[in-house]
Design a protein around this nucleic acid. Sequence first.
DNA 1: TGCCTCATGTCAGCATTCTGACATACGCTG
DNA 2: CAGCGTATGTCAGAATGCTGACATGAGGCA
Lengths: 149, 149
Amino acid sequence: MRQDGVGIDLETSLGYLLKETASALRSALEDVLRPLGMNVTHYACLELLAQRPGLSSSELARGAFVTRQTMHVLLQALERAGQVTRPAEAPTGRSLPVELTPDGRRLLEQASAAVRGVEVRMLSGLTTAEQAAASAALRAMVRSLRDGA
Amino acid sequence: MRQDGVGIDLETSLGYLLKETASALRSALEDVLRPLGMNVTHYACLELLAQRPGLSSSELARGAFVTRQTMHVLLQALERAGQVTRPAEAPTGRSLPVELTPDGRRLLEQASAAVRGVEVRMLSGLTTAEQAAASAALRAMVRSLRDGA
DNA sequence: TGCCTCATGTCAGCATTCTGACATACGCTG
DNA sequence: CAGCGTATGTCAGAATGCTGACATGAGGCA
């Protein structure tokens, strides 16, 4: 408990709790993805491509919450590893549509199963209604945070 | 929507939403802390010290969700900047109790006000009951994630 | 048409954080 | 008492992600 009324009580702060939860989730994901030679950003990139093939590097960056420069170097590595492909030149504008290769898709299937396991474990103590309420609350928070900026 | 049943639908995944919210919060915090010359970890360190003076470097690291090596270099910088102090040798064991200086406390007051503003904005669209529900859900998720590891 | 703004891809350099390693100090247990 | 496991502080090197910058292409508008 704080004596003064100025600071933020970390024990009850939703922001702090959010950071704690995200940190725990990240750790758990890294634990299950490491055996596959992947990290969280790598997995997010592949999962995004499975759902929306043809996304550009910049769009993938926004979806994985990193800068486009970071995604650029990741895509170079994934291209070398044969998990994704990009055309030599842009069909229109400057954006190069990225797609999964069969190898990338196979790797993603293993990763998805592992990630799904973590998510199931994370939600194991919550009812469906509680999950829906949490989801709605998080969406409202994102909206408020974005509006202000 | 996914065709196959193996992957994770990012539009509805609570894990993805959690990452998105944490990312938005982090961005918003960095925006208000940058004018003060601070980052999120720096702020978290000072806030922890205000609430629990005498915490060791390793304990601060756990509280700020970074490694103790990272906290170590941060504390060196903060010590040079005159925001925290540490005794030359440990009173017992190896752990050195860290404390805020008056300068550090003054800086923290400004940062706390800024951070509080962001948190208020983040929660502006939620009722008190909804906040409590979200808090309980996040706590349950942390517990489940930690248990499995 | 020419210009202005914006988004993208890409390169280079820097900052931050992590992993690995080692020595030291405490507490427990045989 | 001796040994073991654990936690801490610290150093060094490596990985990761970011900021800054530049050129290029698309679209809107005078």
